[in-house]
Design a protein around this nucleic acid. Structure first.
Lengths: 341, 341
DNA sequence: CACAGCGTTCAAAGCGCTTTGGGGATTGCC
DNA sequence: GGCAATCCCCAAAGCGCTTTGAACGCTGTG
């Protein structure tokens, strides 16, 4: 059943029916009720394609899915998506996943922007130099950023306090007496990686300790990469007594390296990991339970979707700039630094 | 730039230009080349919305995303999605993620089917009694299934050999001398869970062993659930000497329980897990490295998307019914059963 | 030379919705 | 009673594409 038929059924014009359905004030409350009831009764649903063509609005938000990148580091992505889905469902928005490779990512964005298949895109994991942001800004296509944009001015975004999280975690380790600390960070190109790096460095500086004690490594945050870097480091003479991990996955690799070397966590080695709260991999299900800096990726997903929808509704870019605090949860993977041997 | 403008630019009718672009035979090769060149030059892209309205085809495939269910058990989902994305990108298809709660899932499907926002939906993790399949079948809406449909007749699907995988894994454990085996399975409602259950039972029967030696449990496959069930079982007198895990996540929980109880894997306890190849959690990054039944969820994703697109292209439902073999990979988490004490 | 046949191209009619620019009723006011 | 103002409602024009049915120009045949 389409509008025309419904209108005929009601002996009203399409215009009136359309307006009644869309809540325009030009139609009396009485007829609106009648129309609504009839629509309900006949199970009428406006055609999204037609509406889209007529209005130019897609009622969909776009997420570019870089398969290669995400597959590597993002079981998080599901949880994030679940968050996005939650709010977009409430507003009747669809989520369009546009696959892309690192190679054609920019082309994908520019297609999305010109196609009209989505009204807004959510951009994740911004880079320190981000061509995607540059492109969308120039095209004046609505977008919001999950993470800290390199140049935040005029951009609505939502981030967690990566700087604070790692500063806090590092200070905590320093207080426990750790001096040789390893930081297994993500890839240097991401702003969140830079923030974490600065956070850790700041903690060292604040404690009056030389920056050289912080052994930092940048890499895609997988268990295997972490294992590869942690294992030789832990075998060395001046091995680190504590390792800061960029994610739970990284911690997994470190745990393996430690186990293989017979190092007890936390007696011989302390571990702090950043935890985005993947329900599938709760930090407290590890052995030992992990001390973490915790933030909810899912909550971030629901919120950033809200911001995206507000943007569609006309809110100015830059109107939202939230940085969520991150909590340090001390569990069993951290202890006082071992005595100097 | 739209069709009309492009046509005007070329001094041709919209009809001709449209046909040239879409490869219809009614236009001469010469003009087709001219049109193609011009389209390229002006960067013309047909409006998806308009095309959709005119043709009724959406050029999109739908995946219903049940946030609650997926969040629990599916870091897999990303990897699967990556696979789907891979092939759909090649064909220029978009992926529409429709969020839903368990509550309104059926409504979501029926909306998708009547909306015209997608041309086909991919249904995952079919249930033993699956209202979604019933609905789509009745509506005659194109769909394909990832997993074994309860009644496979007339349905295109792709599944891995869950039965064979667990039969093989169980036989392997039995050969190692294990008699008290625990199976931590998923929720009973899924067909794959039933298949795995049957696989394990069959192995016991084939070995002439009583079914009572197989201690099977059904639950959402999370690390925490696994821990909760494994821990007391491992503390009991007649504790299992081997545990079959429905996923890597489940194995994680079991490993924790074992570690806390001071049980050595594989000396005191053997573990076999099913591994869908999440790159984030490679089975060989655990300590000990896990013996697994392995299949690639990502490859399944790319293939099921192909099947879905073939379905859109007119292939009959039921034309594809693939069951992929699953390989048993023996690593360090399995060993001969400990001596009877 | 007329006509059929073929290969190309075109004008126009949708697809189902929104929205502009009016226009009947009905009401309030003088 | 006449006029404008106020409500409601409508006809029709798009949105940008596909597709039907017709027409055009050209060739080959009787």
């Amino acid at each position: 059943m389409n509008l025309k038929e419904l209108a005929a059924e009601l002996h009203l014009s399409q215009t009136t029916v359309s307006r009644a359905l869309n809540g325009y004030p030009e139609v009396s409350e009485k007829t609106r009720q009648i129309v609504l009831a009839a629509a309900q009764r006949f199970g009428y649903r406006p055609s999204p394609a037609a509406r889209r063509l007529a209005t130019g609005r897609a009622h969909a938000l776009g997420v570019v899915f870089n398969a290669e990148r995400n597959a590597l580091m993002d079981p998080l992505f599901v949880e994030y998506l679940a968050g996005v889905a939650e709010t977009s469902a409430k507003q009747g928005f669809d989520i369009l996943i546009s696959p892309s490779t690192p190679h054609d990512e920019i082309a994908t964005y520019s297609r999305l922007a010109s196609d009209g298949t989505v009204d807004v895109v959510i951009l994740s994991a911004p880079l320190c130099v981000d061509p995607r942001i540059a492109l969308l800004s120039e095209l004046k296509f609505p977008f919001v950023v999950h993470g800290r944009p390199p140049i935040p001015a005029g951009i609505s975004y939502l981030d967690i306090d990566n700087f604070g999280a790692f500063q806090q975690a590092t200070s905590f380790l320093i207080q426990l007496g750790h001096r040789r600390v390893m930081l297994i960070n993500g890839e240097e190109q991401f702003t969140f990686v830079e923030d974490r790096s600065r956070g850790a460095a700041t903690a060292f500086a604040a404690a009056g300790l030389p920056a050289t004690l912080l052994d930092e490594h940048f890499m895609p945050m997988t268990a295997e990469n972490a294992y590869r870097i942690a294992r030789p480091a832990l075998e060395a003479d001046a091995r680190p007594t504590a390792i800061l991990c960029g994610s739970i996955l990284v911690a997994l690799g470190v745990l393996r390296a430690a186990a293989e070397l017979g190092l007890d966590v936390p007696r011989d080695l302390s571990i702090v990991a950043h935890d985005d709260e993947m329900p599938a991999f709760p930090a407290d299900q590890f052995h030992p339970q992990l001390t973490t800096t915790r933030s909810s990726i899912r909550a971030a997903g629901t919120r950033i979707a809200e911001v995206a929808l507000a943007r569609v509704a006309g809110q100015k870019p830059g109107a939202v700039a939230e940085v969520w605090p991150v909590q340090l949860i001390v569990r069993g993977s951290t202890a006082a630094a071992p005595e100097r041997s």
